[in-house]
Design a protein around this nucleic acid. Structure first.
Lengths: 219, 219
DNA sequence: CTAGCACTGGAACGGATCATTCCGTTCTGG
DNA sequence: CCAGAACGGAATGATCCGTTCCAGTGCTAG
């Protein structure tokens, strides 16, 4: 979609161009919401939620899979961004817990978990996934340096925690977020070192391979 | 299916009767596994998993919904049984944590969460659901009496915890169980009282109404 | 020994659901 | 006032899946 005019692009424009720009955003937002609620939702549901015709959607994406990939990749990028932002903190523990809260709030993990496997990933996504893994490991390493991280807790466990938080879901998004925070607070205290009952975590943590299973295409 | 003979019923029988008895069990077991993995799985998948023809299944259940209801109700009964068993313990804290472990191991919650809403519940299920709520409350009350339960933790929070554990899933059932135990250990320490960082849990806990949403029929 | 019957496996049916395409319309930019 | 970008939504065609149906099989009663 080449921009024929020199005018600034964006949703502020009037007329067809403006509508198009607005639709760009409405569609991704709708896709995010709809597919988050149900990864198998029909494409038409996304269009309806965006208040848009189906053709407006197909003009932008080659097909359903494209859309899914896009939404999922956006989530992955968001995860990376949050991790990088958190790494700015000098305090490793604050960085770690802040990161968890941010990711939970953004509902990013829910997205990845539910959507992965429903499309064939691109190379770039693979690279981003690898990078997200590195960043997570870095965050965990820094948290450990701070001395507050419970012994035996690994970067792979982060995934489980995020997954657990993503599992609390309610019809009202606001309530969902509030309850996730509550739940996260619970879990974080379980992760905190230096408390009583800090026996070793049972069993070995998940391996990267086990976690990677999500990305393999199912069905 | 009237039993014309005085012979004992059960899977040990030879011939058609024996096959029928064996199929009874194979079908519920298969249904449990299949619907746990994917609540929307086709009925034929259940039959295939049970190593049985479709008609063997339809002879026993009026339709897919019947089957779903059955599997879910079984899970609910199991939950109740575990709770009652746990209540035998004199130590309220041990009863509580033991109950959590048992339910997580049995994968009972995963079942309820994923399946509820895909069929119209019977009256009896409503009653059982209510009873399970009472038992859970009792377990929490006893845990509180023991003094080890973190302040602010409610019976409704139990559901969130179970849900979180149910969210960790891997292709290998054994691995899934092991990792759930690991995760549960994490969470339980977060629930334990008398540790550092025991600030109040943020926000109000989920209400019974919010939790009941699962049981309303969706789609 | 055999007729009847309880059960079974699996093919066939029919309805529902969707991804995708197509077409007539609307509005902008020049 | 025209060319065409962009749109809404109906039409299409394929797939999937729940359910029904039927022909076979081997107990079991008499």
């Amino acid at each position: 979609m080449p921009n024929h005019t020199a005018s600034p692009s964006g949703p502020g424009l009037p007329g067809r161009r403006g509508q198009a720009a607005r639709n760009d955003e409405a569609i991704v937002a709708a896709a995010r919401e709809v597919f988050l609620a149900d990864p198998k939702a029909p494409v038409s549901a996304v269009a309806a939620r965006a208040g848009v015709g189906i053709s407006a959607l197909y003009r932008r994406y080659g097909g359903k899979e494209d859309l899914l990939r896009q939404v999922c990749h956006d989530g992955l990028r968001r995860y990376i961004a949050e991790a990088e932002a958190a790494l700015e903190h000098a305090d490793g523990w604050a960085a770690f817990t802040g990161f968890l809260a941010a990711v939970v709030d953004a509902d990013v993990h829910s997205l990845t978990v539910h959507l992965a496997g429903s499309f064939t990933p691109t190379e770039e996504m693979g690279a981003d996934a690898a990078r997200s893994g590195e960043l997570t490991a870095e965050l965990v390493a820094r948290a450990r340096e701070s001395g507050r991280l419970r012994a035996g807790f690994t970067a792979e466990d982060v995934t489980l925690v995020l997954e657990g938080c993503a599992a609390v879901r309610f019809p009202d998004p606001g309530r969902t977020r509030a309850l996730r925070r509550r739940y996260l607070a619970l879990v974080v205290r379980g992760v905190d070192a230096g408390a009583e009952g800090a026996a070793d975590l049972p069993g070995p943590p998940a391996t990267a391979e086990e976690l990677g299973w999500r990305w393999s295409r199912r069905l």
